[in-house]
């Protein structure tokens, strides 16, 4: 009876550990992904849109 209880408890602890590990990995992965997204959003290509828009605006104003 007692051995069964121990086995059940052991399995439970193991399962908990696995769940925590997976959770952890997911958090880490989301860290990697959001960091990439952050860095990519700061790339010169990503920034060109705003620059071009404002430069065009300025050139138009100066041209007048």
């Amino acid at each position: 009876m007692l051995t069964v209880l121990f086995i059940v408890m052991g399995v439970l602890i193991l399962a908990l550990g696995v769940v925590m590990m997976i959770g952890n990995r997911r958090i880490n992965e989301s860290g990697v992904r959001s960091f990439r997204r952050h860095i990519d959003a700061l790339s010169p290509e990503a920034r060109r849109e705003v620059h071009d828009r404002v430069r065009a605006q300025r050139d138009k104003k100066e041209g007048r």
Partner: peptide, 10 residues
């Protein structure tokens, strides 16, 4: 302005 264009990523 760039941050508002890429609000979620930044």
């Amino acid at each position: 302005g760039h941050c508002i264009e890429h609000y979620d990523a930044l």
